[in-house]
Simulated assay, not measured.
Amino acid sequence: MTEDTTNEEARHAAKMAKKKAARDRMMERKEGEKGLVIVHTGAGKGKSSSGFGMILRCVAHEMPCAVVQFIKGAWDTGERRLLEGNFSDLCQFHAMGEGFTWETQDKARDIAMAEKGWAKAKELIRDPEIRMVLLDEINIALRYDYLDITEVVDFLQNEKPEMTHVVLTGRNAKEELIEIADLVTEMKLIKHPFRSGIKGQAGVEF
Rank of each mutant, 00 (worst) to 15 (best):
K120L: 04
N158S: 14
A13D: 08
T169W: 11
I190Y: 08
D136Q: 10
A17N: 14
I149Y: 02
E79Y: 04
P64N: 00
V166P: 04
Q92P: 00
L189G: 01
W102R: 14
L124C: 09
L142E: 09
A74Q: 12
T169I: 06
E162Q: 10
G197K: 00
I178T: 06
T5C: 01
R143A: 14
K47E: 01
K160E: 11
A22D: 14
M27S: 12
F87P: 09
E176R: 03
Q105I: 11
K30N: 03
H40Q: 15
K30S: 06
G46C: 06
E79G: 01
K188P: 00
D136M: 09
P193N: 05
L124S: 10
A17P: 11
G51L: 11
A119H: 02
V67W: 10
D110H: 03
V152Y: 05
E3G: 02
G85L: 07
T6V: 07
E28S: 15
E103Y: 02
E79A: 06
Q92E: 15
R23Q: 08
G73C: 04
V68K: 13
D89Y: 10
E103H: 07
L189R: 01
A114P: 12
H61E: 03
I190M: 11
A112I: 03
E151Q: 08
G46V: 08
P128L: 12
H40K: 15
V184P: 00
W75P: 01
R131P: 03
M187Q: 02
F206A: 12
E159V: 00
K30T: 08
E84K: 11
V204P: 07
A108Y: 02
E159G: 05
I180S: 09
F194I: 14
G44H: 08
D106M: 08
E186Y: 01
D110F: 02
A121E: 04
S48C: 03
A114I: 05
E205I: 11
E62A: 05
L142F: 06
A21D: 15
M26A: 13
L83C: 02
R143K: 12
E8W: 13
V153E: 08
T101W: 09
H61S: 05
M27R: 14
A119E: 02
V184K: 14
G53S: 04
F100N: 04
